[in-house]
Nucleic acid binder design. Sequence first.
DNA 1: ATGCCAACGGAACGTTGA
Length: 289
Amino acid sequence: MRIATWNINSIRARAERALGVLDRWDLDVLLLQETKCKPEQFPAEPFEAAGYQVAAAGLNQWNGVAIISRIGLDNVEIGFPGQPGFAKEDGAGALLSEPVVEARAIRARVGTGSRGIDVWSLYIPNGRSYNDPHFRYKLEFLRRLRAAVGEQLAADPARRILLAGDWNVAPEDTDVWDIDFFRNDVGMYVTDEERAVFNAFGKPGTGTEGDFAGPALTELTRGADGADYTFWDYQRLRFPKNHGMRIDFGWASPELADLFAAAHIDRDERKGKGASDHVPVIMEFDAEA
DNA sequence: ATGCCAACGGAACGTTGA
């Protein structure tokens, strides 16, 4: 079985490329981020014609996540318990609007096997800059996500869960093309705070004093072949110079991690006219759909 | 070679992303 995650940067602009990715990798499930449309605007027909089902979430032209599956698509849920919203603030930190829970998480049960897999397509907020409210929003989003998944796994440790998407975190210094540039000039994706909340997914919870519960998850894509990065900015020849970032990952619960076989980064998808700035990351499992 | 930012809404250009 093959599941891929991809920040497609508009499904309407790249539906043909998505169909090509499904075919090229013989995918059972494709988790999309930055679909940039409402569900009623999602071009579902060509995917349905190819034998897939589609579930999409989107409030407007920003964000947007979706799940495309040919092995079943049930129990769709948009968002997660405790998912924080974002509220505009004035310069003093006073809220100028009610928080909006953005379209950054969608979950579904896929697979007709014995237990199925709960797959999540996740688009973690970009923190923008260290002193921007979006940075605190990003950290809180990750903390709350870890808690929500921990609670589910504590209740059912055998559950097969995959959390995949665009995490907007570079966990290792080698996950960016120039760590000094990112530390000193970009100031985002590589901070200790971001790495701590990202790495918390790989640690068990204690379930005490407000800490989350449940077992550690396993990140599946670290040893992927195909490329060192999953994103190359459109500007300044970043792709031809291989000045990229690795920020797309997949965390698996213990029972799913046991089935993991291999991961691939589809670097070729970054080539040519009309490419997304991210490429698909494919995860293979030793399991029948 | 892989090539100098792109998509959105809305109809010019501001917002957003990373």
